[in-house]
Amino acid sequence: MSAIAALLIFPGGVFLLLVGMIYEWIDRKLVARFQNRMGPRWFQPLADTIKLLAKEEVVPDGVDARLFFTLPVIALAGAMTAALYVPLVGFEASYSFSGDLIVTVYMLSLLTLGTGLAGANTLNRFSLIGATRTLTQLFSYEAPFLLALLGPAIVADSWQIGEITDYAGDHVWLLVTQPIGFLVALIGLMGKLELPPFDAPEAETEIVAGALTEYSGRGLALFHLGKGVELVIGLTLVAAFYLGGVTHPLIFVAKTLALLSILAGLQALMTRLRIDQTVGLWWRYGALLVLAQFLALIVWEGVM
């Protein structure tokens, strides 16, 4: 019974979706305010979702209809499953086993993968290019992002999210001891969510809406919800690992919101990178830096 509640109501399901929308709203509002605009009202993400859900879903010719319908569901399901293993809003994770960190990270990638496949599934030329870009970008930030999350795992000597957060709670903030990992994790999160400057896969002025160009109605709504969920989970992970573990829920939420405002600021201040520049940036700097730190950590652990 409690398992079903955990899946459908709290911390998964409805609660998660709502938190995702609230975080999305805060992000949009902050970017708008940075740009001296009004920004959307608080219910806008919810209204968007309801509108999209109510709309007719047009299935374009030449797609595999089964894939077209199931991919959004899989993408959202992946993101929601990941939520079960992370300490959402500062509460103990619902499920936990040794190695759940890796599972969580891969569940999160399911959304990106789903987006890419959804684009490749259609014949639309913008979608195809968008899908190529989405997947290219996935390969560029994925490894550094994973390494950045593994840094805390190495020092905590565990692959279980709960134990890592416990370790992070008992020691100085890992932000201080592993600053590079923190930066890479935060920026990798932006890449994962395709936020500016990593929004080349959905660059409106080039390829319309990228991989999701052909999606309307329900599928689009599910992908959007997935994005919101992923934003929450990503922020939770980074805050729990690097900003002193799981604490009182209110303080924890404040920490994630602080991270969110940094993300919003970066979004506002950056110019979109071309896809080749994104790849270059990640492999030339991101991966190398985080790898250097990773090696240093291993050596350090070995010496201790």
Binding site: D61, G62, L123, N124, R125, F126, L128, I129, E204, I207
Partner: peptide
């Protein structure tokens, strides 16, 4: 009419416009 990407002879053409967000 089913749409097919203009892919004859391995040529991939991207149409920009007449209606496009960039224009």
């Amino acid at each position: 009419m089913p749409t097919t990407p203009t892919q004859e002879n391995d040529v991939f053409r991207i149409p920009i416009g007449p209606q496009h967000p960039a224009l």
